[in-house]
């Protein structure tokens, strides 16, 4: 069985590899040629990132990132000209095991019983594709319960 390949993030059109040159390109020329960046610096508006990645998933295995390309463009705050262009690839990436702790949130968790019993709303008509979501379906609990 062949793996499924999927590309995420920014998409370069083949054959027209735009090259961004420091001191020649400005914010407008980059915007015009590449469009909005995939993401900007968290606290630094003058850094633009174009992130693209390809992932491969095979049957039940967890999808794996096959390659990644990040183009980071920094601009001078006043002149708006490109100061430097840095490219990162998959090799620069690292494996990080993310902290499992989470900041707690409130909110009423539906109790198990409420979910299980609150839902025997109707007896099954024939399990036929489009039947359920059609006008006039069988009883079911009142709409605004």
């Amino acid at each position: 069985c062949n793996p499924i390949l999927r590309s995420h993030g920014y998409r370069y059109t083949l054959g027209q590899e735009p090259s961004i040159m420091p001191d020649e390109d400005s914010r407008d020329s980059v915007m015009q040629r590449l469009g909005n960046p995939s993401m900007r610096g968290t606290f630094d508006e003058n850094t633009w990132f174009y992130v693209s990645a390809t992932r491969e998933s095979l049957a039940y295995l967890r999808p794996v990132t096959r390659d990644r390309r990040i183009v980071a463009i920094r601009f001078n705050d006043e002149t708006g000209m490109v100061t430097d262009v840095v490219e990162y690839t998959l090799e620069d990436g690292r494996m990080v095991d993310y902290v499992s702790r989470e900041t707690p949130t409130r909110g009423r968790e539906l109790s198990l019983l409420e979910q299980l019993l609150g839902n025997i709303g109707r007896l099954p008509g024939q399990q036929f594709g489009g039947e359920e979501n059609l006008p006039g379906g069988a009883g079911g609990p009142r709409r605004n319960q």
Partner: peptide
């Protein structure tokens, strides 16, 4: 965590 995973060290240190 995300920046470190991507390899963007300067962003990571900034944040």
């Amino acid at each position: 965590e995300a920046y470190v995973a991507l390899g963007l060290d300067s962003e990571a240190t900034q944040v």
